[in-house]
Design a protein around this nucleic acid. Structure first.
Lengths: 339, 339
DNA sequence: CTGTTAGCGCTTTCAC
DNA sequence: GTGAAAGCGCTAACAG
């Protein structure tokens, strides 16, 4: 199978010792003469040093474990792109494990990775449970979370609450009083609680007529679409969706019901995915820069690995993208009747 | 750093020998008594056997290298999802490397992975060059390509040509004579040549009035959008886009130009991404099942690793999704004037 | 500058 | 059944 040369073979062929070859491969500190000879032999043989033997000695794998809730998501892709941008130049590689949206599996993956001897772990978490904390306590390799936050761990995440607030202030300023928040389970703290609460807080503040109804839906376009009638039943003037995906599903439902957006109902989302712009109307949203999140997360982890401190943060810059799906309401009190 | 227990520690604590512990960890063949003792000690210590030492002996890494053109793409996500579905139950893990859309980097990644001692490699390729073939010849670890095909390698891919044909036949049957094919560079054989040629062949066959103009664009929504005016300049009755993404960009351009789709111009794409359904109008497309591609690719690789043969294939099932963006043309010869 | 010598932690004959 | 011993391929003192 593995008809590869070892460092010993190279040494023999170049008529030097193993260590000289090893030195050639690592620090240097050898004569030009032997250096040339070794270089030549290596060229000829196509020698590659054995990864596992090397790692066994080095106590460093140059591997970073990355735990993801799923693979086929735009945000995950962006995140990975950012992580990779930082890891690669430093010679680190990512070992990716998928949790299939299950917290339990996320925990299994952690111990799994730890066993493989990765130098650090990045977790795009579904929720940080007691199980996570306990497991993390039992070993000392650096871990950085994203997606969720918790005081007991390092994390880098978008400012879900702040994003909610921006949207709350905007929708309110547009003159809406009655909105449906199409959100997700509060098992997901970041999206299900922080983002929603930020919205509600900003929307309700000094706003006596304000009313927010909540409809729980899933993360998928399909489940959002399926929640369409339930949302409509509340007769809101606007529906704020916890993610762009949900917004797109709602938009589709409304379109099929021949309800004009934004004239009859306004719709907004969170995420800022490029696809938001192709819908009709284009989706107004708060955009997150997941690539930046990935970069910050990876950088934080690298700092930790290097023995430095890292600051957790949940205040990454947000950008509000006003497109076409939300419009103003001039008069008060008649919103419900307009539907 | 790594204050972990070794097999020796466990042996001492359990008052047995290293080898007994090793046996416990592997085949078995030890007395119940010692077995219990060892099990207990392992529980207490939280011992995890060293991955690298194990791999060094075993000559098997249980690692599969996966080379991807980029991370933030829906198709890549789906593919990975499928690959993972096969690999995981078999105890394999994926080591992912990204080529940033550069063929040269793809090649670097191959040798990189090979050096790490992966058991096999999956390449979602940008194009199989002589460089690839040469490198692959120099070592003997199993490799399966997807995305592109070549007689000298193993591959599993979607039927690009067949997809093109389906679309060609459809557009033609809808009564269109003059279409613009908004495609990509022919450096990408699969999408740039096979898919396009399939379309042209089916569209032109026994179709004297047929005319296909070609506009080259990039893979991104933005670049497709930017090609809008160039496409329009040909005054086609339909524009067939090499990917859904391109279709979405064109749709957006047309929308902003107040050109009605499909009444004035029909638009179609390839891919079948879920997002195609949120555009307005929803995009008619040929859908690929990338998750299935991922599964077949991974299974093929596993077969190769097990010493079995695998059949390359480029005939994975396709499904045509007729949505709203293409409509029929009744009369001949006046198409251009209608614009 | 270079070769010799120990292991890294694990698996695996090979005797007992 | 179990332990002793011999490495897997590499790096890192340690002498020279």
């Amino acid at each position: 199978m593995d008809s590869k040369y070892t460092i010993q073979d190279i040494a023999d062929m170049a008529k030097v010792s193993k260590s000289t070859v090893s030195r050639y491969l690592n620090q240097g500190y050898i004569s030009q003469e032997k250096m040339d000879k070794i270089k030549q032999v290596i060229k000829e043989t196509g020698f590659q040093s054995n990864f596992f033997a090397k790692r066994l000695k080095m106590k460093q794998s140059k591997l970073i474990g990355i735990i993801l809730p799923r693979m086929d998501s735009v945000t995950v892709g962006k995140l990975l792109e950012g992580v990779n941008r930082i890891l690669e130049p430093e010679g680190y590689q990512g070992l990716i494990l998928v949790s299939d949206l299950k917290k339990q599996k996320e925990i299994c993956n952690i111990s799994n990775l730890q066993q493989q001897g990765v130098d650090g772990i990045i977790i795009d978490s579904l929720g940080i449970t007691r199980g996570h904390l306990q497991l993390l306590k039992s070993f000392d390799i650096p871990v950085v979370f994203t997606g969720q936050q918790h005081t007991a761990v390092h994390y880098v995440k978008i400012d879900d609450e702040g994003a909610g607030r921006i949207m709350g202030a905007y929708v309110r300023q547009k003159g809406h009083h009655h909105v449906v928040f199409a959100g997700v389970t509060n098992m997901d703290r970041a999206v299900g609680i922080e983002r929603k609460q930020g919205f509600i807080d900003a929307f309700m503040e000094n706003h006596p007529k304000a009313k927010v109804d909540f409809v729980k839906t899933g993360f998928s376009f399909e489940s959002a679409y399926a929640s369409g009638s339930e949302i409509l039943a509340f007769k809101p003037t606007a529906v704020v969706c916890a993610t762009d995906n949900i917004g797109l599903g709602v938009l589709r439902y409304l379109h099929e019901q021949k309800i004009k957006v934004p004239q009859e109902i306004s719709v907004a989302g969170f995420g800022g995915y490029a696809v938001g712009v192709v819908s009709y109307p284009a989706l107004t949203t708060v955009a997150f820069d997941y690539e930046l999140v990935g970069m910050k997360t990876a950088q934080g982890l690298l700092d930790l690995i290097a023995g430095k401190k890292m600051e957790s943060q949940s205040n990454l810059p947000l950008s509000f993208i006003e497109r076409e799906s939300v419009c103003g309401r001039q008069r008060d009190g008649v919103d419900k009747d307009r539907i």
